[in-house]
Simulated scan of single mutants.
Amino acid sequence: MSDHPQPTPAQHSPGTVAGRLAVVRERIATAADAAGRRPDEVRLLVATKTQTADAVLEALAAGVDLIGENRVQELVAKAPAVADRVADGALQVHMIGHLQRNKINQVLATATGLETLDSLELARAISDRCVRDDRTGDRALDVMVQVNVTGEESKSGIEPQDAAALATAVAALPGLRLTGFMTIGARLTAAEGPAGEAEQTVRAGFARLRAIRDEVLASGAPGTASATELSMGMTGDLELAIAEGATIVRVGTAVFGPRVTATTL
């Protein structure tokens, strides 16, 4: 967690990034309390897709210490603006979008973590680059296995029944540190049935990811002891994710407002 003081809604205008961040933090705290958890058990990742470097810096000034980028192009473009904070350990930058093998070098040069690992082939390619660059031991890349808990073809991630085996294999690779699991939940508006049933569908997906995490931790396999993170829940469903054990929630629109279709980085 960041050592920066956390603003409250009363301290900032609701129309500013700082004000919206305060509201999101209050939502996290309220959801954690309702689930019998401490707010500091849930970390906020601010998703910066389509945002300008200036908007990202505004979020950092409000105490954000973890951001996530969906596109490698944007990750690289914004890297110079946040490089100093990354270098001194004040900021972590996660890749939260699909990664192609030909973009591995760019991600390794700018990101501190990858949340979207979904194949052993990709994991081995990243491991090879990390070893080549002497990025092992304490300098290993933090990675999460992305799991498609909804079965939707539009979503990336490995099938749930194959996730534990992939995670165990990834944990044994040099240059990679398995820190947990990530998923994108079912859309509340797309789930069939009344609102209560829709929420149950979303929660069931999150619960399945938690079960996979717990299975891997209980296995005692080499390198799996650090796989404690559950990155799940976004602007519309973060309360449901926290109720099911999320340790990281990924929020973009609730912090920056509606996304724009184009941006000047």
Rank of each mutant, 00 (worst) to 15 (best):
L240G: 03
P9T: 05
A165N: 11
A140Y: 00
H98L: 05
K49S: 04
R132K: 14
Q106G: 08
R213Q: 09
T179E: 03
V82T: 14
T112A: 03
R37G: 11
A47W: 03
M144W: 12
R213G: 02
L122A: 08
D40K: 01
V131Q: 12
L60E: 04
L117I: 01
R38A: 15
V260Q: 15
K103R: 10
V17G: 05
A171I: 07
G15V: 05
A55L: 11
F181A: 09
A246E: 10
L60R: 06
R208G: 09
V64G: 07
A190P: 05
V260N: 15
A123E: 02
A164Q: 12
G151V: 14
T183Q: 07
S127F: 10
E215P: 06
R27K: 12
R25Q: 13
A77L: 11
D118L: 05
R250A: 12
D118A: 13
R177F: 00
L265M: 13
D65R: 11
T150W: 04
K49R: 12
S219Q: 00
V23I: 14
S219W: 00
T261W: 13
R37V: 06
V255W: 10
L209D: 04
T136I: 10
L57I: 00
R43V: 01
V170D: 04
A22Q: 07
G97Y: 00
G36A: 00
A241P: 04
H98S: 08
A10R: 00
R250W: 07
A254T: 14
Q73R: 13
E192F: 08
M1D: 07
L44A: 03
V24S: 09
I96R: 07
A218L: 00
